[in-house]
Design a protein around this nucleic acid. Structure first.
Length: 677
RNA sequence: GGGGCUGUAGCUCAGAUGGAUAGAGCAUCGGUUUCCUAAACCGGUUGUCGCGAGUUCGAAUCUCGCCAGCCCCA
């Protein structure tokens, strides 16, 4: 509701200024530092002062006195050096928020949105960094689903089951562990096969590291066998990858994360997706065969001249820019094709980015090819999960891929350059709208604090010990496994629950502990903005106090406690009169109560900001702030013992409103509050 | 060599579109429980917003230069 009212305020101001001064100014609003100063403020008079060459406060005064009434806004006042502060109609705002508290929060984009996330190499157990990816992706998908309009959000998990990482584990099993296909099959059926592969992969990587030429030969033949399919080596790769994928799915299900489709690289190969994309790229002249220089024999995508295009856009008259363009041109001549991106190597193999372009084209329905689909067996939870297939497709499969209107790829920021190349590929093929709608949801990695690394028995070099964090490495077998962390969290929360609720039955205790553990981990990963590198430490992740998921869950639990007690005590569902509302809002506690109402009514604002800024952390911040504001309110007002019946009814109603909004916000974060904790 | 990200309190981080006295959590010191759950609340302490210029009525935020760290491409 906050979003709606501020927009109304901006629109009214914009129209008024256009009419009165003949100026078209983009109006911005901000939240005043104190609730006494209103709920929305515009500094537009400062901008006007510049243009009209008059004092800002005088202009503000003029606008405030001549502005027509705005629905939902009680008054507009001048404050400070010339701010225009809007004061909402408190009682009406409360009514609106209560009425709206079940519907979509922010205007949606509509259409079909594809979100690809998780996409872990299926060759080892998932670690904490993979969880950040999955939680970010899952959260943005939840947020997008929640927006209005006929939006369809489809979540895909890309499985590179024919890549070098799987090959390395195959090499480990065959050449180091001396296992045959039947033995690997047996191992793959075990519940901790992903942990076994974690170690096998680390050992294989070490083994391959020792002798580069042996590594190249082994990898070459193994990859070839896997890509061609059919033989025992290929079968072993499949067995490993499928088993690991199932275990990853199980791990993510613990966090409430599910998928609609597993898109597998094996099908991209077998169904010749790349060939189709290759033909398109060649035909459009988007890629060229280099004939000279060090890239001779490679198909390359010429570097785009981004700087040039953007500068020409901004200021075409500046002579400086002309100079810049010239020097840029002579630069690119000298460096030959240094900035160009190789798509097909001179030996004929296609690079990752090439396959990514084909896949991205498919997502937008531009490839002219489709997968076949089968149900993935034993998917966790009650969700139906589909997988791509190259034969015997299930005709009842839904439509995947085409036509995505927006595509979100959740991939860490180290791959920003490659994602950029994919976009440029689309653009070069004439699909500039699709390029613009390709969103790389980039995020920084999760590393470990040196202390955490040392705790895990990892020997640090003196340089590493001085750094703020140490990067995890699958190759070194170094990192915090997702299941280990979840186990640890669940053990900690369960022990807390058992202490606090001795008479709770064991199953409920376990479920409660699980919900809190999930809340703690998801919130921990979401409270950082995407660009922040998370230096992981068990102490922080296992904290349940302060800015944490459990803190937010606890606020909901408190509210439920009040409602439960209230019902037991036979509290009446008394109607709150408008007089009571008006009296309370204007009384001595009015601003405090009002502040909580405004915050509860600002979920739409947080969701909008999260989508616009592609930043799920905004929703986490909102949930925390609302929980914090509620706790303040809780300590100020003892609801059930309130003698004034009308006031008690009002406080109860407000409590319920906070519950609705907080539960919604937490739901967007994939966090569920237990009944008791 | 080219490109990207980051630098804010002792620590970890927020500060979207430039705006009013730069905020949270943790840590630390002190206080709050006959009362809806203390995983909570209240109070104290803590700042050259990396450095330097510029644009502006106004800069943590925009521009340029420099320094430091991380990443990517070659």
């Amino acid at each position: 509701m906050y979003l709606k009212l501020t927009k109304r305020f901006r629109d009214a101001l914009g129209a008024h200024i256009r009419e009165k001064y003949g100026l078209d100014i983009a109006i911005v609003t901000e939240r005043p530092p104190k609730i006494e100063m209103g709920e929305a403020a515009s500094p537009v008079s400062f901008e006007l002062a510049k243009r009209l060459k008059r004092a800002p406060r005088q202009i503000a005064q003029e606008i405030a006195s001549s502005l027509a009434p705005i629905e939902g806004i009680a008054r507009v006042e001048v404050a400070g050096a010339g701010y225009l502060n809007a004061y909402f109609e408190r009682a009406n705002f409360l009514l609106y928020v209560q009425r709206e508290a079940g519907s979509a929060t922010a205007p949606g984009r509509g259409g079909k949105i594809i979100v690809e996330h998780t996409s872990i190499n299926p060759n080892k157990a998932a670690h904490i960094g993979h969880v950040r990816n999955a939680v970010l992706g899952d959260t943005i998908a939840r947020v997008l689903r929640h927006t209005g309009g006929a939006v369809q959000v489809q979540v895909q998990n890309y499985i590179d089951n024919t890549g070098v990482q799987v090959a390395d584990v195959v090499i480990g099993f065959v050449h180091m562990e001396k296992k045959n296909l039947a033995q690997v099959r047996e191992l793959a059926a075990q519940p901790k096969f992903d942990y076994l592969c974690w170690d096998v992969y680390a050992r294989a990587a070490q083994f391959l590291e020792q002798d580069k030429s042996r590594a190249a030969a082994l990898r070459g033949e193994t990859l070839k066998a896997i890509e061609e399919g059919g033989g025992e080596v290929a079968e072993m790769g499949m067995v490993i990858a499928n088993a690991i994928v199932s275990l990853h799915l199980r791990t993510m299900a613990r966090l409430g994360i599910f998928y609609e489709l597993l898109a597998r690289e094996s099908e991209i190969l077998h169904l010749h997706f790349w060939d189709a994309a290759f033909e398109q790229l060649k035909a459009a002249g988007a890629i060229l065969l280099a004939t000279t220089g060090k890239m001779a024999g490679c198909w390359i995508m010429p570097a785009k001249e981004k700087a040039k295009a953007e500068k020409a856009d901004v200021a075409s008259t500046e002579s400086l820019d002309a100079d810049a363009n010239e020097s840029a041109n002579s630069d690119s001549d000298e460096n030959a094709n240094n900035q160009d991106k190789i798509i097909v190597r001179s030996n004929g193999t296609v690079t990752y980015v090439g396959k990514d372009i084909a896949y991205q084209l498919w997502k937008f329905g531009l490839l002219g090819k489709d997968f076949l689909y089968v149900k993935w067996p034993n998917a966790p939870g009650s969700h139906v999960l589909w997988s791509t297939a190259s034969e015997n497709g299930d005709p009842s499969a839904p439509i995947f891929g085409a036509p995505g209107t927006w595509v979100y790829n959740v991939i860490d920021s180290r791959q920003a350059y490659l994602q950029d190349v994919v976009k440029e590929g689309l653009r070069a093929l004439g699909h500039s709208k699709e390029a613009d709608h390709s969103i790389h949801l980039a995020y920084e990695i999760v590393a470990l604090t040196p202390r955490c690394a040392a705790e895990m028995g990892y020997e640090l070099s003196p340089e590493e010990a001085k750094k703020p964090y140490v990067e995890v490495s699958g190759r070194k077998g170094f990192g915090v496994k997702a299941d280990d962390l979840l186990d640890k969290l669940e053990a900690a929360t369960l022990s807390e629950v058992q202490q606090r609720h001795v008479d709770m039955d064991r199953e409920t205790q376990r479920e409660t502990g699980q919900k809190i553990a999930v809340g703690a981990l998801r919130f921990f990963l979401l409270k950082f903005t995407r660009n922040a590198t998370i230096a992981f430490d068990f102490k922080d992740a296992l904290s349940f106090e302060g800015e944490t998921g459990p803190y937010c869950q606890y606020a909901v639990v408190r509210i439920r406690g009040i409602r439960r007690k209230g019902t037991e005590a036979g509290a009446t569902q008394m109607e709150v009169t408008q007089e009571t509302v008006a009296t309370l809002f204007s009384g001595p506690e009015g601003n405090g109560l009002w502040e909580l109402v405004v915050l509860a009514g600002s979920l739409d604002m947080a969701v909008e900001a999260a989508i616009k800024g592609q930043e799920p952390a905004f929703v986490a911040k909102f949930a925390f702030q609302l929980a914090q504001a509620f706790n303040l309110f809780y300590h100020h007002h003892h609801i059930l013992s309130e003698a004034d019946e009308q006031k008690r009814a009002f406080l109860l109603r407000l409590t319920e409103l906070v519950e609705t909004q907080l539960v919604r916000a937490l739901d967007l974060l994939g966090i569920e509050a237990p009944e008791k904790m």
